[in-house]
Design a binder for these strands. Sequence first.
RNA 1: GGCGCCGUGGCCAAGUGGCUAAGGCAGCGGAUUGCAAAUCCGCCAUCACCGGUUCGAAUCCGGUCGGCGCCUCCA
Length: 513
Amino acid sequence: MTIRVYNTLTKTKEDFEPVEPGKVGIYLCGPTVYKPSHIGHMVGPVIFDTIKRYLEYNGFDVTLVVNITDVDDKLIAESQLRGITMEAVAEEMTADYLKNLGLLGVNQIDEMPKATDNIDEIISFVSELIEKGHAYDSDGDVFFDVTSDPDYGELSNRSVHDQQGEGGDAANRKRHPSDFALWKSARDGEPSWESPWGNGRPGWHIECSAMSRRILGRSFDIHGGGLDLVFPHHENERAQSNCCHDIPMVKYWMHNGLMRAESSAGKVGGRSDRELDDNQATVDTKISRSKGAGGLAELIERQGGERIRFFLLRTHYRSTIVFSEEGIEEAGSALDTFARLFERVERISGESVYDQPLITSREIGELDDQPGELLKEVANLRSGFLSKMDDDFNTGGAISDIFDLARAINRFIDQQNLEDSSSRSNDDVLQVTRAATTIRELGQLLGLFVTRPQQASGADDALLDSIMQLVIKLRTRSRENKDYETADFIRDQLAEIGITIEDGKEGSNWRIE
RNA sequence: GGCGCCGUGGCCAAGUGGCUAAGGCAGCGGAUUGCAAAUCCGCCAUCACCGGUUCGAAUCCGGUCGGCGCCUCCA
């Protein structure tokens, strides 16, 4: 069992071996908190949350860091526009971001450092770069000298010659057009901090170099982010850190694919809308406002976090995901299979699958020999799931195995006629329970099936449940009297208010759709 | 112009040199059901196109067509 990881730097999958055995440091570039987050911002957190879960399951001690960029041009612009402080904007948008992460089950983040809490660290980092001859002070701005880094451009595969470089008035203070700002001198009315080069604020890239060093050390394992960050952000971070420390900052650079709106409008929340002709712009703007870029909170409320998470994880993390709400609904239909299965198992065993203890380590599971016909199949599928995850966290491929698992369990229940209590054996019930628990064991690695769904059955609301028991009793009586007209009427009427009745071998079940 | 990605069944989506090309959604047929629903069983693709390498390619190479990203703030 070797985990393999695709490294953007080498463009190949490599065997995963942490810098320090048993320990893994992951730094994921988080958001600039100037606007509410959209679904595209969730792709990285969901996949890296999943990666951490998987690595921990495999016995690694993982630290996951996601930074918050709370000082930059866009934040300043937003605060001026709204007439409130930059801190207030950042605070509001950070809260929005955290709320959305929570709803999607992203709860593996260990630290979320903010740029403004690390100004001292940033200033000393810049000073070190100047001392080592990799940066220069130019009239209150400090720039990184890209020509001092022989490896510059290696990550994004480009040479200094074909760089455009930032334009604007900063350009004539640079020695080379590709040099980028480590420290920007303050303009009137902008937030600023004292520094050896005068009042100013950090450049975009330096916070990540400084904060990752503080928390994860000079050399850590995984640095992640969206594909759009490879250049210039990660290229520049890498240049800063490598030049400052003379050791590789990061062992594995991992980048997730970006999300795109339907009808190839460009990425969600991106700027491509305005470049389209009128006709298309109308279509695409509507899509992005109603379905994603606009209200993530509303989207989550409508669909549920688990569905969205599953939707994201169905596609390989390096691929582009085309956003559509239909896609999320389809993912939801697929996910319902598991909710129904867990209820079915609960009816048979009398215990909630959600109350069963979960295996949280791969080793324990592998040592456990599984007796019984069903559990043999389960063991096979389980190892299929794990080997797909081993191969660069192929969540999309691995998911097929949990569907096969569900089918195997349902088939076993059918064949052994376990819904009929008279034909149940303790061994069969045990096998089914353990098999279903294996789905949860694997699901938890993806952040799925972690908590019991609220509306899986009526048990949440005692009054509703007793009323439904009564309704079912009345309907059962009708059926026994062969009064199918009444029985069907009750079922149809319930369906209209969103309650599904299913007649089973030992009575009827109901479910809120 | 430079760098890079993608094109697998109606739709979504794994697989990237060799068992019968995963899985999901939808559909169809069957079992089951009073009828349904759920569940199970079965059916539904030769992998954009052309050429090449190879005993053998969806998987490698070249070309064509089509879609997309980065090079500027962006997860």
